[in-house]
Amino acid sequence: METAKEQEDTGKTANCTFSGVVRIDLQRFTNSDVNLVECPGCGRMRSLTPVKGVLRFKAHPPRKQQTLLTAKRWSSTGTMDWNVVGG
Protein backbone atom coordinates (compact mmCIF):
# COMPACT_ATOMS: atom_id res chain seq x y z
CA MET A 1 0.00 0.00 0.00
CA GLU A 2 1.35 3.47 -0.94
CA THR A 3 1.82 6.13 1.69
CA ALA A 4 0.70 9.71 1.13
CA LYS A 5 4.33 10.78 0.62
CA GLU A 6 4.86 8.18 -2.13
CA GLN A 7 1.69 9.37 -3.86
CA GLU A 8 2.97 12.95 -3.81
CA ASP A 9 6.30 11.90 -5.32
CA THR A 10 4.63 10.17 -8.28
CA GLY A 11 2.07 12.94 -8.91
CA LYS A 12 2.32 16.09 -10.97
CA THR A 13 5.13 18.54 -10.43
CA ALA A 14 4.06 21.63 -8.49
CA ASN A 15 3.44 24.74 -10.59
CA CYS A 16 5.63 27.82 -10.55
CA THR A 17 4.54 30.48 -8.08
CA PHE A 18 3.96 33.06 -10.86
CA SER A 19 0.78 33.06 -12.90
CA GLY A 20 -2.08 35.41 -13.60
CA VAL A 21 -2.37 38.93 -14.97
CA VAL A 22 0.80 40.42 -16.43
CA ARG A 23 0.80 44.15 -15.79
CA ILE A 24 2.25 45.46 -19.04
CA ASP A 25 0.56 48.51 -20.54
CA LEU A 26 -1.33 47.14 -23.57
CA GLN A 27 -0.31 50.08 -25.76
CA ARG A 28 3.39 49.43 -25.00
CA PHE A 29 2.88 45.69 -25.55
CA THR A 30 1.21 46.02 -28.94
CA ASN A 31 3.58 48.78 -30.13
CA SER A 32 6.63 46.65 -29.29
CA ASP A 33 5.80 43.82 -31.75
CA VAL A 34 7.18 41.44 -29.09
CA ASN A 35 4.68 38.92 -27.71
CA LEU A 36 7.11 36.65 -25.84
CA VAL A 37 6.91 37.08 -22.04
CA GLU A 38 9.38 35.62 -19.53
CA CYS A 39 8.11 34.28 -16.19
CA PRO A 40 9.86 36.25 -13.42
CA GLY A 41 9.64 33.19 -11.17
CA CYS A 42 11.38 30.52 -13.27
CA GLY A 43 12.29 32.02 -16.66
CA ARG A 44 9.81 29.99 -18.73
CA MET A 45 8.69 31.93 -21.80
CA ARG A 46 5.21 32.13 -23.26
CA SER A 47 3.77 33.90 -26.26
CA LEU A 48 0.90 36.07 -24.98
CA THR A 49 -1.95 37.89 -26.67
CA PRO A 50 -4.42 40.18 -24.93
CA VAL A 51 -7.81 38.65 -24.19
CA LYS A 52 -10.53 41.15 -23.27
CA GLY A 53 -7.81 43.77 -22.72
CA VAL A 54 -5.74 41.64 -20.32
CA LEU A 55 -2.47 39.70 -20.66
CA ARG A 56 -2.54 36.49 -18.63
CA PHE A 57 0.35 34.09 -17.93
CA LYS A 58 -1.15 30.63 -17.38
CA ALA A 59 -0.15 28.37 -14.50
CA HIS A 60 2.85 26.28 -15.52
CA PRO A 61 5.43 23.85 -14.18
CA PRO A 62 8.75 25.56 -13.41
CA ARG A 63 11.39 25.66 -16.11
CA LYS A 64 13.86 22.82 -15.51
CA GLN A 65 16.74 23.57 -17.89
CA GLN A 66 18.53 26.81 -17.12
CA THR A 67 19.89 27.79 -20.54
CA LEU A 68 20.90 31.29 -21.55
CA LEU A 69 17.88 33.33 -22.68
CA THR A 70 18.71 35.44 -25.73
CA ALA A 71 15.36 35.88 -27.50
CA LYS A 72 13.73 39.31 -27.59
CA ARG A 73 11.11 39.17 -24.84
CA TRP A 74 9.30 41.03 -22.09
CA SER A 75 11.03 40.56 -18.75
CA SER A 76 10.51 42.09 -15.33
CA THR A 77 12.79 43.13 -12.55
CA GLY A 78 12.03 42.40 -8.90
CA THR A 79 9.73 45.44 -8.88
CA MET A 80 7.54 44.00 -11.66
CA ASP A 81 8.60 46.79 -14.04
CA TRP A 82 8.27 45.09 -17.45
CA ASN A 83 10.65 45.94 -20.32
CA VAL A 84 11.71 44.39 -23.64
CA VAL A 85 15.14 42.74 -23.33
CA GLY A 86 17.37 40.47 -25.45
CA GLY A 87 17.50 39.98 -29.16
Rank of each mutant, 00 (worst) to 15 (best):
S19N: 13
G20H: 13
V21R: 14
V21T: 15
V21P: 01
V22Y: 12
R23N: 14
R23P: 02
R23G: 02
I24H: 03
D25E: 11
D25N: 12
L26V: 07
L26F: 06
R28P: 00
R28G: 01
F29V: 07
F29W: 11
F29E: 04
F29N: 08
F29T: 04
T30S: 09
T30I: 12
T30P: 00
N31Q: 15
S32M: 13
D33G: 06
D33C: 02
D33M: 08
D33H: 12
V34F: 02
N35Q: 11
N35M: 05
N35R: 05
V37Y: 09
V37K: 01
E38C: 12
E38M: 06
E38V: 04
E38H: 09
C39N: 05
C39L: 08
P40R: 06
P40S: 06
P40A: 00
P40I: 04
G41Q: 10
C42Y: 15
C42Q: 04
G43D: 01
M45V: 09
M45T: 11
M45S: 07
R46Q: 06
R46N: 04
S47N: 13
S47G: 05
S47R: 12
S47M: 05
S47K: 07
L48C: 01
L48P: 07
L48G: 03
T49M: 09
T49G: 04
P50A: 14
P50N: 10
V51H: 12
V51W: 14
K52V: 03
K52W: 08
V54L: 10
V54D: 07
V54E: 15
L55W: 07
L55I: 02
L55D: 00
L55S: 00
R56V: 04
R56S: 05
R56Q: 11
R56C: 07
F57D: 02
F57C: 00
A59H: 05
H60Y: 13
H60E: 14
P61M: 13
P61N: 03
P62M: 10
P62G: 08
P62H: 13
